[in-house]
């Protein structure tokens, strides 16, 4: 018998929390973006686990779509980051305050 699904769910929850900590504590925009990927992967692991537990393929289809959306998100997000870096060198998230009134 394989490892019970709850173990995978716990692992995914811990990975998600680590991603949250990274987003809230790191200030480099690229590393924050990597933490978003981490959280997406944690949720993907949850989807696959539920797919196995419920014996249903829909979870894997959801992961498939998450992968596509993550790829599109990375393309646009990194384009934004490059566009910001072109204006200001040495950007951390705290420096991006041009919307401040």
């Amino acid at each position: 018998m394989s490892v019970p699904g709850s173990w995978y769910l716990i692992l995914a929850a811990v990975l998600f929390s680590i991603g949250v900590v990274g987003i809230l504590t790191r200030r480099n925009v690229l590393v924050m973006f990597m933490c978003v990927e981490l959280m997406l992967n944690a949720v993907n692991l949850t989807f696959v686990t539920f797919s196995r537990m419920l014996n249903d393929v829909a979870g894997q289809v959801a992961v498939f779509f998450v992968l596509v959306v993550a790829a599109a998100e990375v393309v646009v997000g990194l384009g934004l980051i490059v566009a910001i870096f072109r204006r200001k060198a040495n950007v951390t998230a705290d420096d991006l305050d041009i919307l401040k009134g």
Binding site: S6, L9, I10, A13, V14, F16, S17, I18, V20, V21, L24, F50, S51, R52, M53, L54, N55, D56, V57, A58, Q60, V61
Partner: peptide, 29 residues
């Protein structure tokens, strides 16, 4: 907030999380 998220997910996982019907879309046979 990370600890709170972890706790929240754990609480959700302890209850009846897998309430969906089995194999509604297609079986992984």
């Amino acid at each position: 907030s990370a600890v709170l998220i972890l706790l929240e997910v754990s609480v959700l996982a302890r209850t009846r999380w897998a309430t969906g019907a089995h194999s509604t879309t297609a079986k992984l046979t």
